[in-house]
């Protein structure tokens, strides 16, 4: 891990100062080889850059070239997570009318196979005389994740920021995690995803974007850590016109749906938030606000629901 990290720093430094040109960077090819023989003439025009060590350096503009696929972060960093964070989600059931905009955005951004959904909206009705409601369900990013416990090869793992991710380059496709997850949120790529283009297929897989999905491996909601790194909200959160999803950091005690921001602890206290099937001891990172004083009647959602 340390070696990886060192070489990454070194690599970034070279990229910035030396003006190394990167051609198509597949995960296999060494970034140092590609384009090393290419000769570039200095233009004389300088730009100021901040190096990884925090120093301001000047570099000739000609040495900077756009990189088609800047390797995001290393696998070991993706496995460690974003330091100091503990991501949580709050889903307000009183706001959902089964529009499925969240689902569409998620499927689109993650290039999920057209038969599959990472985010499902269930019509829930527990008892005979209880009222039905719509329940959007993401991965709970359990703090005691049964799926991680059973994975034989550490292909699904828990990070220090609370997110549970999948390494599709390592997954052997045993589907034990699917049997273990009580929330049935995991899906499997039974064939090569029809939504993944040839071009996308050649890209190196990233655990944080979960793209590209690969045949014979599992997939699931990833809590969009790539968006969090960019200080943006997960796709489902920003797609919902009703502001059903709130996303945030437990350590900062704040969650937001883009339009409104709440103190997480207050929201949970005021609206009596709860966790799904917490009796199983999975300790979910997703909290639900009960479907009290609903914005829409349940029937409204039936128009969209196709089962």
């Amino acid at each position: 891990m340390d070696i990886n990290n060192a070489s990454r720093k070194e690599f970034l430094a070279t990229l910035v100062t030396g003006g190394l040109v990167l051609a198509g960077c597949s995960s296999k090819k060494s970034p140092f080889e590609a384009g090393a023989d290419e000769m570039v003439k200095a233009s004389g025009e300088k730009v100021k850059l901040l190096s990884v060590d925090g120093e301001v350096i000047e570099v000739d503009k000609a040495f900077l070239k756009p990189v088609p696929q800047l390797p995001a972060i290393t696998n070991s960093e993706e496995r460690r997570g974003i330091p100091g964070k503990k991501f949580v989600m709050v889903i307000d059931l009183s706001r959902c009318k089964n529009l499925r905009k969240c689902q569409a955005a998620c499927n689109h951004m993650h290039h999920v196979h057209s038969d599959l959904n990472w985010l499902k909206v269930y019509p829930m009705n527990e008892g005979e005389h209880t009222a039905p409601y719509w329940q959007p369900t993401t991965c709970m990013h359990c703090d005691e994740p049964p799926c991680v416990k059973v994975c034989p090869v550490d292909a699904t793992f828990k990070r220090q920021d609370g997110i549970v991710l999948i390494d599709s380059d390592r997954c052997i496709g045993c589907r034990f995690c699917m049997a273990a997850c009580p929330y049935s949120i995991r899906v499997f790529n039974w064939e090569k995803p029809d939504t993944v283009s040839e071009e996308l297929c050649g890209q190196p897989y990233s655990c944080e974007t979960s793209v590209p999905q690969k045949k014979g491996t599992v997939g699931k909601c990833d809590f969009c850590p790539d968006m969090a790194r960019k200080n943006e909200l997960p796709h489902c959160v920003s797609a919902c016109p009703n502001g059903t999803f709130f996303y945030g950091d437990l350590n900062e005690d704040s969650v937001t749906n883009g339009a409104e921001t709440f103190r997480f602890s207050d929201l949970i206290k005021d609206k009596a938030g709860y966790q799904l099937m917490d009796d199983l001891g999975t300790k979910p990172s997703v909290y639900y606000l009960p479907p009290a004083a609903r914005n829409f009647p349940f029937e409204k959602g039936m128009e969209i629901d196709k089962g």
């Binding site: 090869v153 550490d154 997954c171 052997i172 496709g173 790529n189 014979g216």
Partner: peptide
Amino acid sequence: DMGRPERFYNLFLFGR
């Protein structure tokens, strides 16, 4: 039954 039989060796490389 494995979705990725060619990665069987992962059980020995990364076995938990």
